[in-house]
């Protein structure tokens, strides 16, 4: 499995990560090796095998009564905010200018 630096760049953009030119080069090799290892799964005949999405044997969807309860107080929800203003999280402009 060969990954190009362009592939790495694309995936990094999807994952909201910056990668330097040097990191791109190294990651293309490392990720390529991991994916090459996982290539062995391609040799299996998996026709009619359902995917397992979770591991609980006896798990069912459990619902609770639809009664309102106290939620996290605003001050506590904001306590860890890197930047807040008037009870809200403040972030840089989405678009410049």
């Amino acid at each position: 499995m060969q990954l190009t630096e362009k592939d790495v760049e694309h995936v990094a953009a999807l994952a909201r990560l910056h990668v330097t030119e040097e990191q791109k080069r190294v990651l293309a090799i490392e990720l390529g090796q991991i994916l090459a290892y996982a290539q062995e799964l391609q040799s299996l005949d998996l026709t009619d095998i359902p995917p397992t999405t979770q591991a609980s044997a006896g798990s069912k969807t459990v619902t609770r009564a639809d009664r309102p309860r106290a939620s996290l107080p605003q001050a506590l929800a904001l306590a860890n905010a890197p930047d807040e203003d008037e009870g809200q999280f403040r972030v840089p402009a989405v678009l410049e200018g």
Binding site: A38, Q42, L44, L46, I49, P50, P51, T52, T53
Partner: peptide, 12 residues
């Protein structure tokens, strides 16, 4: 090719 296949192998 990757995620779904891995989940199927998980079943096996």
């Amino acid at each position: 090719a990757y995620y779904k296949r891995a989940q199927q192998v998980r079943t096996l």
